[in-house]
Write a protein that binds this DNA or RNA. Structure first.
Length: 434
RNA sequence: GCCCGGGUGGUGUAGCGGCCUAUCAUUGAGCCCUGUCGAGGCUCGGACUCGGGUUCAAAUCCCGACCUGGGCGCCA
């Protein structure tokens, strides 16, 4: 006995041209429509929908009654004959000869998969497995996959090597953010907040163009629509180049990603009007940013970081993707290269979306002496950075790089209000399950 | 951590002191219907987060807890 699941096709692989052929499909019971003498079973799979039609008079009674009773969202396998039918999705329907219920669903569902009734984010996240069956959520993650592929294609094409650095580390990397402590045999260790130090160390390896797409962990108790305690960072580091080079690389990458998403057929399901941003992106200095923000009537002090409301004010003024450059050294990490004689700024930049910051990067300090000095001037202990500093003592090329938040990019592109929506199983201060 | 909102059937909501044995939609159970595509029609089932308080009377007002949305802070 052959199972109908063998040789199954996706719903959209079948067309009216297959009329008369025997096919198998498998998927979830999306909807049932009982008209009395005719019964429609809409089966959903990854590709879309297929209509399975049963005529009361022409169908074996046992089969007809059994199909009528299959609860929605049950998993079924169908074998039957293709019939051209203009009124059906994809222009065909299946007249089943065999229906197997592979998994019967409980009849009362945690949320509606058809889009008739909405669900709150919390409800969706609690039942994420089912939320992913909805068109909107499904496409968010298909687009996410597409974006990550586009990024890899873009970087691979330019000679980058994809590498992975440890997520379990011995100490704070850059200071700043809080870390999650973990028990590591008889020692304490931490989940890494950023691959920063490791990707820089790789610059001393001869792998002069590297990237990593991996999780980062931050133990901040923040509670906003743009922060996660576990996020995905896209990190790039390039040797023998400076901040200008990596800014250009970044804007071209972003434009390439947009181009790939604009072409995505499922974009229509998300109801947005996406345009590929023009390169080069606008660049404004930190000084200009402060001026613009204070001209707009917002209180801001030079030398301080740009807070959320100032960020929004500036975003509204600029209205497109832009870079903020020439940041004060004092508010950028120790590894940012100072601009030089008599200046208190460094060669660091942030890539901003009108809503929020997407990426930050810089030309890095590659002089051992200067780096050590900057670590100490930030009040950090050079000893705990020995493993990192060592790589600067035996031939470290000049280099630059950036880190880009994958979820932030996705939420901004798709105009999604809460970053949790673009993570399968988000980790925030309150949520550890599922 | 601070400041505002909000917790009503499975889901999404209306009601905001007595008209509430609580509205509507969807879902569920059942029935009618041979072409649905958010099918339609009829019947039935299903809820006021928890604990105190005020009041003749609380879903409705007050207090606390828990959960939750947003604004900020912190942070990327």
């Amino acid at each position: 006995m052959t199972s109908p699941i063998q040789n199954r096709k996706y719903a959209t692989e079948i067309t009216a041209a297959n009329e008369g052929e025997r096919v198998s499909i498998a998927g979830w019971v999306h909807e049932k429509r009982d008209l009395g003498g005719v019964f429609f079973l809409i089966v959903r799979d990854r590709s879309g929908f297929a209509q399975v039609t049963l005529l009361r008079k022409k169908t074996e009674k046992e089969l007809f009654e059994r199909v009528k009773r299959v609860p929605r969202e049950s998993v079924v396998a169908i074998e039957g004959e293709v019939k051209r039918e203009q009124k059906a999705p994809n222009g065909y329907e299946i007249l089943p000869t065999r229906v197997e219920v592979l998994s019967e669903a409980s009849p009362v569902l945690p949320l509606d998969t058809t889009g008739k009734v909405g669900a709150e984010l919390d409800t969706k996240l609690d039942a994420r497995f089912m939320d992913l069956r909805t068109e909107r959520t499904k496409h968010i993650f298909l687009i996410r996959s597409r974006i990550l592929k586009a990024i890899r294609d873009f970087l691979d094409e330019r000679g980058f090597i994809e590498l992975n650095t440890p997520k379990i580390v011995s100490a704070a990397t850059e200071g700043g953010t809080a870390l999650f402590p973990i028990s590591y045999f008889e020692r304490e260790a931490f989940l890494n907040q950023s691959p920063q130090l490791y990707k820089q160390m790789l610059m001393a390896s001869g792998f002069d163009r590297v990237y990593e797409i991996a999780p980062i962990f931050r133990a901040e108790a923040h509670d906003t629509t743009k922060h996660l305690n576990e996020a995905t960072s896209i990190d790039v580091e390039v040797a023998f180049e400076d901040h200008e080079y990596v800014m250009t690389l970044l804007e071209e990458l972003i434009a390439f990603v947009y181009t790939n998403v604009v072409d995505y057929p499922g974009l229509a399901k998300l109801d947005l009007n996406l345009e590929v941003p023009k390169v080069p992106f606008r660049r404004i200095t930190y000084d200009e940013a402060i001026e613009q923000i204070s001209d707009a009537g917002e209180e801001i002090v030079w030398g301080e970081d740009i807070g959320t409301s100032a960020e929004h004010t500036l975003g509204k003024i600029i209205g497109e993707l832009y870079f903020i450059t020439d940041w004060p050294c004092a508010i950028k990490p120790f590894y940012a290269q100072p601009a030089g004689e008599g200046k208190d700024t460094c060669n660091a930049f942030d890539l901003m979306h009108p809503r929020l910051e997407l990426s930050s990067g810089s030309q890095r300090v590659h002089s051992y002496e200067l780096l050590k000095q900057q670590i100490e001037s930030k009040g950090l202990s050079a000893d705990s950075f020995e493993f990192y500093l060592d790589s600067f003592r035996y031939g470290m090329p000049p280099h630059a790089g950036w880190g880009l938040g994958a979820e932030r990019l996705l939420m901004c592109m798709l105009e999604i209000g809460n970053i949790r929506e673009v993570v399968l199983f988000p980790r925030d201060r309150k949520r550890l399950v599922p």
